[in-house]
């Protein structure tokens, strides 16, 4: 049991430690919140990309659904997170199922699935940017309320940090539970060879929709938490393609084959981006993204397993030796 959930437990402990560091300094807490939030969403994204081979470039759609449900729920109907978070997750599941049905029925895979998901999120981005009651491209502020607790409004950042630790733990443990049971095996089989998997009794459509819905629901929860944490949503930061690309980058750099890989990517890149911005200053607007892009290209070419993959291989060295001995066993058998 412990062994099974070790890949979820260790990052959770590290996140709690990171939260502890954040308690010391509000600036650290802000960075912790971004790493924990976007990193966890990247983990949810990677259930599709890394484990099922469905690379979504439209995950900002689900993040945006979460963020805008919270914002409009509060502004329009006075609803708090108790109502808006479940609604957001339901809406994300429903849209994922619709988009998934469309794409998979059309036979889209590989690049074309990515582009189609990108198209869906672009439609949402453009429509929200044009919709008056959603604040157009200016976005929406969540008004502060006297009933602060009901709307999760705090004077400090640390309660949000705590919520994000819980979100991270939920995502990691839930994902690991799925990955080590039948769905995880089916997803990996589908990633590699859909025809062979189906012939072995894997219902391809059902399990691709399952991973899509699960990933979308967790992403929407992330978006909902984002809205409550920052009390502000706008199309660019919650629905824009930049967010989806960011998930891909964290996954590539951290390692797509690992549950915690994208989290590692976020933990390295978000603080690095902050440092770059601090040292280069705002005078060189854009130069930090140039550095970011260069890093992304170089790492994608040179380290296909990501940094986490390299790290994971180091940690798994003992079991690799065990495999080597198992390899020799048949030879011994044949000789005797």
């Amino acid at each position: 049991m412990l062994r099974r959930f070790l890949p979820a437990l260790v990052p959770t402990m590290l996140a709690i430690a990171g939260f502890g560091v954040g308690l010391a300094d509000p600036y650290f807490m802000e960075i912790f919140i971004m790493v924990g939030l976007i990193g966890t969403v990247a983990v949810a994204w990677n259930l599709m990309a890394g484990f099922t081979g469905l690379v979504s470039l439209g995950h900002s759609l689900f993040f945006g659904i979460g963020a805008y449900t919270v914002a409009y729920g509060q502004v329009g109907f006075g609803l708090g997170p108790l109502a808006t978070w479940p609604i957001a997750m339901l809406m994300a599941a429903a849209s994922a199922l619709c988009i998934g049905l469309l794409c998979f029925r059309y036979g889209l895979r590989g690049y074309f699935f990515s582009i189609a998901t990108l198209a869906f999120s672009e439609v949402a981005f453009l429509l929200v940017s044009a919709t008056l009651w959603l604040g157009r491209s200016d976005g929406m502020m969540l008004p502060s309320s006297p009933d602060a607790l009901r709307y999760l409004q705090f004077d400090h950042k640390w309660p949000y940090g705590l919520i994000i630790v819980a979100f991270l733990a939920l995502t990691l443990f839930l994902s690991q539970a799925f990955l080590t049971a039948r769905p995880g095996y089916y997803w990996r089989a589908l990633r590699d060879n859909e025809g062979a998997a189906e012939a072995l009794g894997v219902p391809a459509m059902r399990y691709k929709l399952l991973v899509f819905a699960l990933s979308a629901v967790l992403t929407a929860l992330g978006g909902a938490i984002f809205a409550n944490t920052f009390a502000f949503v706008d199309p660019r930061s919650t629905l824009g393609v930049e967010l989806s690309i960011q998930l891909l980058v964290f996954g590539i750099i951290g390692g797509l084959g690992l549950l915690w890989g994208p989290l590692l990517g976020a933990a390295l890149l978000i603080p690095a981006g902050e440092l770059l911005r601090t040292y280069l200053g705002s005078g060189f607007h854009g130069i930090n993204i140039v550095a970011y892009a260069l890093l992304m290209i170089v790492l994608a070419l040179l380290l296909p397993q990501g940094l986490g993959g390299v790290l994971g291989a180091r940690l798994a060295r003992p079991s690799a030796e065990k495999r080597a001995t198992a390899d020799q066993a048949p030879a011994v058998e044949a000789a005797s």
Binding site: G110, S114, G251, I289, V290, A293, M296, L301, P304
Partner: peptide, 22 residues
């Protein structure tokens, strides 16, 4: 892998955009 190819050309896209911006 294909997903890394995607990252490479997406990275190139960002790189050129922001070099042009600079």
């Amino acid at each position: 892998p294909e997903i890394n190819q995607m990252a490479v050309t997406l990275g190139l896209s960002l790189l050129l955009q922001y070099l042009a911006l600079v």
